[in-house]
Design a protein around this nucleic acid. Structure first.
Lengths: 229, 229
DNA sequence: CGTCGACTTGAGCCAGGTCAAGTGTAGTGG
DNA sequence: CCACTACACTTGACCTGGCTCAAGTCGACG
């Protein structure tokens, strides 16, 4: 555990990706690559699992994009995070999942029993470290997210989101946003209208350009960065 | 998705602590009880460590209350969490701490090298599990916190905070809040004035009674609960 | 070409932020 | 024992960013 733990670089929303380590090197990827991991496709809009369900499986996103979310008692929805290929789901769960996970594009995931993962981890220190490190990363992301939600203005939130997402997909210029405006809004703690207006303003002032509503290009990254106080 | 609505119980902040297992039973407590853990006192207002420092140590709070926080680039402060006796600090860090930790009352902590903790964990599966579980708990708390920050009104936030804090200290009726109004405000993502006004209103409508500004009594827990949508 | 869902845009309002005094209350020194 | 200071907290007045409500507009698909 020590080595993997110390080698870890928890990645805040907006920090260069911590060296997406060579697939072969990451014990977690290795675990999911083995024959016991079973691939499932998830249709657009379908839930992979629901909040409150027994957290028996962990998943690796093989293709597509998913979104984890919670529903509040009054029906409001809080999007916790988006999940891109290569990322893991459910590692940081306790006994039950605390979020639901839904596909926002058609997706493929590799699922693995968490018991089996635990069993493997019991004999593989590097895997243990990787599991812990994965939780740490989720934790950091969530704290970064909280900081944005607590204090930032609508413009700052949207700018931070665009930059973070661009960084995650490794996009150099333009990118497709797979999520709806509502998904973004529920992630950023804003009304859908505010997200829409903010993007329109940003385009108006030349920060971004939008080929279509889900296809944007970050024209002035520097000025967007400047917005993320 | 429809089913998710029914399944969900996204109790923010206040989910029952995941079995505060008997001290003797928890391998983490055992680890910190050993001779290698060294006790330190932290004066009120002093930092135990700063954000960005090398995360060499993990700590267990022995006495007093501490607070973890981040400073944003523009000087705004985000309080990430409060830490009561028996809780751990720094377990979920990566290479560096991402928050600073400050004592909001005089405090005593037991510190332990994380390398040593890792070494112990390498030969003790139960300790490994406990470490992981601790990260998971931090992660959940942080997601709950994010949900509150994203969507709740000032009144909902304050109510959720009071109830969660009461539950954590196990208070039946009244309790001392060790943190300043500003600390609360920075935790809840509100202006200090809003926190103050909200508490005044709550007292006005009989939800709480305040013997002094930091000594409150939850008079109508039921109605406070009702506020946490 | 019509329909439907996703998105945009406008108008008005209000919760909560800002600015600016006040009111305790705990030290501290005379 | 009483000023005097300092800091934490409260309160008021006002303003504004973002929410709500209510139409549009756009694009995909039959």
């Amino acid at each position: 555990m020590s080595a993997a733990l110390l080698a870890m670089t928890p990645e805040p929303l907006e920090r260069p990706l911590p060296t997406p380590e060579p697939e072969a090197m990451c014990p977690l990827n290795a675990a999911f690559a083995d024959s016991q991991a079973l691939r499932t496709t998830v249709d657009l809009g379908d839930d992979l699992f629901l909040a409150g369900a027994a957290a028996d499986y962990a998943y690796r996103v093989e293709a597509g994009v998913l979104m984890s979310y919670r529903l509040l008692r009054d029906g409001r929805r809080q999007v916790v995070d988006f999940h891109l290929p290569g990322e893991f789901l459910g590692l940081e769960a306790g006994v039950d999942y605390t979020t639901a996970v839904q596909a926002i594009t058609p997706a493929v995931v590799a699922g693995m029993r968490r018991r089996r993962l635990s069993a493997l981890a019991a004999t593989d220190v590097r895997l243990t470290g990787a599991l812990w490190a994965a939780s740490v990363r989720v934790c950091q992301r969530s704290q970064d997210h909280a900081a944005i939600l607590a204090r930032q203005s609508a413009t700052e939130r949207v700018a931070a989101f665009l930059l973070a997402y661009a960084r995650r997909v490794g996009s150099l210029d333009d990118m497709i946003l797979p999520m709806s405006r509502q998904d973004m809004a529920d992630f950023l703690g804003l009304a859908i209208h505010t997200v829409s207006r903010t993007l329109t303003q940003m385009e108006g002032s030349g920060l971004i350009s939008a080929r279509s509503s889900r296809h944007v290009r970050l024209v002035r990254r520097d000025r967007l960065e400047a917005l993320c106080s």
